[in-house]
């Protein structure tokens, strides 16, 4: 099985590679469109600012490739946000895979949200063996609005989508690679899809 972590220069992707290593999987970092198309599993990470990350995707034509993939794809954090229709951050147009918008948390709460929050209403095989209200590590200033594609929900000021799924596309706002044993289980579930 070949697992690719899309490497488009947005943020620290080593942690994901190491988390998969702990599960006995050697993932390959790549921005090669053919290699990505031919992989069994694709992880789409991202940390940082939405519009500059989207520009980097466009420079390597990856913006066109990702939404055409047919194998299981997992967007993490900014990766998930970029898979939505749009993001308020940098007024960015997204890949349009998930039919929802990404907006900024209000000033009622501290921004960014940093730390461990719970996930509820878990749906999807991605959460096999994960209990309701399990804790996940999150770091973000923008969130995806609730939608019919929501497979996990969290609350910070408002309720929002902390995971989304459409067909073979999965997205999680939290960092499974940094969420202790439960996070590791989610990565393991993804590899089994």
């Amino acid at each position: 099985m070949k697992t690719i972590i899309i490497n488009y220069g947005a943020g620290n992707i080593q942690s994901i590679k190491f988390a998969l290593q702990r599960l006995g999987v050697e993932a390959v970092l790549s921005h090669d469109t053919d290699e990505i198309r031919n992989a069994d599993k694709v992880i789409f990470p991202g940390v940082g600012e939405a519009s500059s990350a989207m520009r980097k995707l466009q420079e390597t034509q990856l913006d066109k490739v990702i939404s055409t993939l047919s194998q299981p794809v997992l967007g993490i954090c900014l990766g998930m946000q970029l898979m939505c229709n749009s993001s308020e951050e940098g007024n960015t147009q997204g890949l349009g895979i998930f039919d929802t918008e990404v907006v900024r948390f209000s000033e009622n709460v501290k921004v960014p949200q940093i730390g461990w929050n719970t996930v509820q209403n878990l749906k999807s095989d991605l959460f096999n063996g994960i209990r309701e209200n399990e804790y996940m590590y999150l770091v973000h200033s923008y969130y995806a609005k609730k939608s019919s594609e929501m497979i996990a929900e969290s609350e910070y000021d408002i309720k929002y989508a902390s995971a989304l799924q459409k067909d073979n596309f999965y997205g999680v706002q939290f960092h499974p690679e940094k969420s202790s044993k439960a996070g590791s289980r989610i990565l393991e579930n993804f590899l089994k899809l």
Partner: peptide, 8 residues
């Protein structure tokens, strides 16, 4: 640490 530890 990054290789072995699964928290931030």
């Amino acid at each position: 640490v990054a290789v072995q530890v699964d928290i931030p």
